[in-house]
Deep mutational scan, measured.
Amino acid sequence: DESNKPILLPNESQSFERSVQLLDQIPSYDTHKIAVLYVGEGQSNSELAILSNEHGSYRYTEFLTGLGRLIELKDCQPDKVYLGGLDVCGEDGQFTYCWHDDIMQAVFHIATLMPTKDVDKHRCDKKRHLGNDFVSIVYNDSGEDFKLGTIKGQFNFVHVIVTPLDYECNLVSLQCRKDMEGLVDTSVAKIVSDRNLPFVARQMALHANMASQVHHSRSNPTDIYPSKWIARLRHIKRLRQRICEEAAYSNPSLPLVHPPSHSKAPAQTPAEPTPGYEVGQRKRLISSVEDFTE
Rank of each mutant, 00 (worst) to 15 (best):
D1F: 14
D1G: 06
K5M: 15
L8E: 15
P10L: 13
N11Q: 11
S13Q: 09
Q14K: 10
F16H: 05
E17G: 06
V20P: 05
L22T: 06
L23H: 07
I26N: 06
P27K: 05
S28V: 11
S28P: 09
D30V: 05
T31L: 11
I34C: 01
A35W: 02
V36Q: 00
Y38V: 00
V39L: 02
G40Y: 00
E41D: 06
G42A: 04
G42D: 03
G42W: 15
S46M: 03
S46E: 08
S46T: 03
I50T: 03
E54F: 03
H55K: 04
G56Q: 02
G56F: 01
R59T: 00
Y60D: 00
T61S: 11
L67I: 03
G68N: 03
R69F: 13
L70H: 06
L73P: 15
D75M: 14
C76I: 11
Q77E: 06
P78S: 10
D79C: 04
K80M: 04
V81H: 13
L86W: 14
V88E: 08
G93Y: 07
T96W: 02
T96E: 09
C98F: 09
C98I: 15
W99S: 03
Q105V: 14
V107A: 06
V107S: 04
H109K: 04
T112D: 02
T112K: 02
L113E: 05
K121T: 12
K121W: 09
H122N: 13
K127L: 15
D133M: 09
V135S: 02
V135T: 03
V138F: 01
V138Y: 01
Y139E: 00
N140H: 01
S142C: 02
E144Y: 04
E144P: 01
F146A: 01
G149S: 12
K152R: 11
K152Y: 05
N156H: 07
F157N: 09
F157E: 06
H159N: 15
I161M: 07
P164L: 00
L165R: 02
D166H: 04
E168D: 07
C169T: 10
V172I: 12
V172D: 00
S173R: 10
D179S: 08
M180N: 01
V184N: 02
V184G: 03
D185Y: 03
T186K: 06
D194P: 00
R195M: 06
F199C: 03
R202T: 09
Q203G: 03
L206V: 10
A208C: 12
S212Y: 04
S212C: 15
V214F: 09
S217D: 05
S217V: 09
N220S: 07
N220D: 08
P221E: 10
I224W: 06
I224V: 11
I224D: 10
W229P: 06
A231D: 12
R232D: 13
L233Y: 10
R234A: 11
R234V: 03
R234H: 06
H235G: 07
R242M: 15
C244H: 08
E246D: 12
E246P: 07
P255L: 05
L256M: 12
L256A: 15
S261T: 10
H262M: 14
S263K: 07
K264W: 11
A265V: 12
A267P: 08
P270F: 08
E272F: 07
P275M: 12
P275W: 07
E278R: 08
V279H: 12
V279C: 13
V279W: 11
S288T: 09
V289G: 14
T293S: 14
